[in-house]
Design a protein around this nucleic acid. Structure first.
Lengths: 158, 158
DNA sequence: CGAAAGAGCACTATTCTTGTGCAGATTCCT
DNA sequence: AGGAATCTGCACAAGAATAGTGCTCTTTCG
C-alpha cells in the first residue's frame, strides 16, 4: 500500500532542514551537524518520533550521525543525489513491486496467464508503480527548494 | 494522508472493468449494465466490499446504477472524462488541501507568517499536492488501457 | 568526571481497515 | 400477482498499524 505516514513526514521535515543547512555553507566544506533536539525545537514534532525517523535514515545510509556531545546528523550525500524514492523506501519499507512486465512481448495481450486475477496488473498496482517511478526522479534538493510549485514537483527536471 | 486502500482497489478494478465493457460497445450507444455479482465472479474480491465501493462511486456521480432484476452499474460519463483524482476523492474522502499558495508574491519568502510550522508547507503536504495534481490529469481511460506502461502513466498526455 | 547526544528496547492506546451479516426497497420476468 | 434478482443502508467484530511515551545504555566533548 502506498501510504505516507507521520514518521515519513517527520523524516522529510528533518531532511529538508538539513538540506537547508548544507546549502547555507559556502561550498562543499564541512556542513555543521544538527542535533535532533535542535530540530525538535524548531518544528512542532514529537522528539521521540523524530529521533526514530533520523535513526532509520542513518541506518539507510542517507544520513551520517555523530555521537556524543556536540553530535548530530548531516546529509551523507549532496541533496541532489538523494532521491525521494530512496527516502520513502527507508522510512516505510520497500514497496515490494514484484515485476511481471519486462518479459518481452510474449503475446498480443502480454502473455500473463492469470491476467484477470493477477495483482500485478491491478489498476492500483500500476498506479503504485507509476508513482514510484516519479518518486525516484525527484531529489531532496527539489523538495527543499520552496520556490518550486508543488504541482510542478514531478513535471520535468529535478 | 495519501493512502490507497483495498476499497479503492476494488473500486478501480470495477471501474476498469466497466470501462472495458463500454469500449466494447460499437459506438456511443447503450453500454450494458454490469451487476456487482458479475464483477465479483470475475475477480477475487469480496462482493460485500465491492458493493460498498460501487455504492460510493454511484453517490459520487461517477457511476449510474439501475436497480431491480437485470440491474447493475454503468459509467455515468465516458472514461476519458473521469479523472483518477475524482475517483480517489470519492473512494477515500477529499484530501483536504487547504490552499495557502496562490496569494501572489507577498514577500521574497512568500509571506506566510507561521512559515516554519505551517503544515501546508511541510514537505509531505507539498508532495501530496503534487501527486494530487497528477491524479487529476490521469483519466480512467488511460488506466484501463493496459498497453500503457505504468511508468509512463503520469508522463504526458492522458 | 559530568553533561550532551545518539542508539536501542518495550509498552500502551487509539484509530483504521477489512470483512461479514441481515433487512429493506426496487424492478424485471414468469 | 408473485418470485427472483439487484441495489441500498446500517451495525458489528477482529485484526493490524500508527502514534506516542519512558527509560537505560553507550559514546564523545569539555
Amino acid at each position: 500500500m502506498l501510504r505516507l505516514t507521520k514518521r515519513t513526514e517527520y523524516g522529510l521535515i528533518a531532511l529538508v532542514h538539513l538540506a537547508d543547512q548544507a546549502a547555507a555553507v559556502p561550498e562543499g566544506a564541512a556542513p555543521e551537524v544538527v542535533s535532533a533536539r535542535a530540530i525538535g525545537d524548531q518544528f512542532p514534532v514529537p522528539r521521540r518520533l523524530l529521533a526514530e525517523a533520523l535513526k532509520a535514515l542513518q541506518q539507510g545510509g542517507i544520513l551520517d550521525s555523530t555521537r556524543g556531545a556536540q553530535g548530530g546528523y548531516r546529509l551523507a550525500r549532496p541533496a541532489t543525489e538523494i532521491s525521494l524514492g530512496e527516502i520513502v523506501a527507508v522510512l516505510e519499507g520497500a514497496p515490494s513491486l514484484t515485476s511481471c512486465a519486462g518479459l518481452g512481448a510474449a503475446g498480443a495481450d502480454g502473455g500473463c496467464e492469470v491476467e484477470p486475477v493477477c495483482p500485478i496488473r491491478s489498476p492500483l498496482a500500476r498506479l503504485r508503480s507509476g508513482i514510484w517511478t516519479l518518486f525516484e526522479g525527484v531529489s531532496l534538493q527539489s523538495l527543499a527548494d520552496r520556490s518550486i510549485d508543488p504541482a510542478a514537483l514531478f513535471s520535468n527536471a529535478n
